[in-house]
Design a protein around this nucleic acid. Structure first.
Lengths: 226, 226
DNA sequence: ATTCGTATACTCGTATACGAGATTGCTTTA
DNA sequence: TAAAGCAATCTCGTATACGAGTATACGAAT
């Protein structure tokens, strides 16, 4: 392959395949809880429901497995990945490690444009009733603050872990109390970044993630008992 | 992901599929450089060579894509992922962040058994002429020191990033000078862990990863020019 | 001679088909 | 009655087949 075709392809973006569409649908279904943790994902059942064959379904399931949303066992099938509370603690510990570092790297390099975009996102979150969009906006706000960290792999990892706990976070979002608290913390964080107060920003982010982790831990533990 | 998934699969009694075998072969071929970066991986060519159909080959390629070893473009095919020097810097920065944290968590909890196993591995590395095994032993040594960190996702991430740079690290291993230097640093690291000198261990690990990153950066940059 | 258009060949994505392994339920026997 | 064995069914993994999109090569026209 020549350099030129590789470049043009990268610019053009990849064509969307059926497997991509199926994985998007399943991803959303898992995130909303329509497909609860532990649910079996039969290949031919899904294929019939979507009106395609099993092959793109297989590809979609593999794709979702890499995102940690489903677990595949040969000869047994695919299941919506269930996460016990301990794993949530693990992921949030990782998020804290990665996101604090990303913020530390990015904070001094944030310009007015990024900060304004982040502020806009917070306003959008306030006006957003749809829980599904809330999660996406939340992720976008965080990633905007880290966007100048200069390490694309770091950003990718953060995004991946965010997606892994997204559907659990939505449990919290029905709790209006958490929403307002989270938004208050977000505004504090943005203010610290705007002032270039790196240490304070890091400390706020740590607190933000820890309260999220604690509340999610309790919420999921409660859900599992029921 | 080599050894760990192999191990956990064996424990779980997970049957080995054809796709697993194919991916293992391709993984090794990529690691050794038999399949150089940028090489096209035609599905039916591989299927014919291995004596299977294209389906398990597709699955294997998808698996390798998640490990970052190949990149797949719909309608264009799969290619051995090429990594520019900047990405190596990024991955090593991530490794430093993750591994230092894992060491910090694990170090106080390391018992005599783990330390002895780690020491054994270092001796094995000294006596190992085969470059392929050297990489696996190197990873195993590092992971042994982190094994008590109490965060399985953290360990998985470390292992994944290790695998992503493994084939580049092998470039260094032909350099006997690096091998002995690396081993000296390993022994320092192990000694610090044995003494419970957490700070010193962290500092040694940082230096170890940074020299590795620097040398690899130069080596890969040189290779690309040629 | 260069460039544009067309036709051919190639590769991938998807569909359909088949065989193996596992799970479930029933029957039979101790 | 309970446990063990057998059979039927279900699901997945793999094979083969087909259609669509893209690259390439060749020819024609400027």
């Amino acid at each position: 392959m020549d350099r030129l075709t590789g470049l043009t392809n990268a610019i053009a973006g990849r064509p969307e395949t059926v497997a991509d569409r199926i994985s998007a649908i399943l991803r959303e279904a898992i995130a909303t809880g329509a497909l609860p943790a532990g649910a079996a994902l039969r290949q031919d059942e899904l294929a019939a429901r979507f009106g395609f064959s099993r092959m793109p379904v297989r590809d979609a399931l593999r794709q979702l497995e890499t995102e940690g949303l489903v677990s595949i066992h040969p000869t047994k099938g695919a299941f919506v990945a269930s996460m016990d509370p301990a794993e949530i603690r693990e992921i949030f510990a990782l998020r804290e490690l990665l996101e604090v570092e990303a913020l530390r790297l990015s904070c001094p390099l944030l310009d007015a444009g990024v900060l304004r975009k982040a502020a806009d996102m917070l306003d959008q979150i306030d006006g957003e009733a749809n829980v599904a969009r809330w999660g996406a906006l939340n992720a976008a706000f965080h990633l905007a603050l880290y966007s100048r960290c200069g390490n694309s792999r770091l950003l990718a990892a953060i995004e991946a872990y965010h997606g892994a706990v997204d559907r659990y976070v939505r449990v919290l979002l029905s709790n209006l109390d958490y929403q307002s608290r989270s938004q208050a913390e977000h505004r504090d964080l943005l203010a610290a970044c705007s002032n270039g107060d790196e240490k304070r920003a890091a400390s706020i982010l740590r607190g933000h993630l820890r309260t999220g982790s604690d509340m999610l831990f309790e919420a999921v533990r409660g859900r599992i008992r029921s």
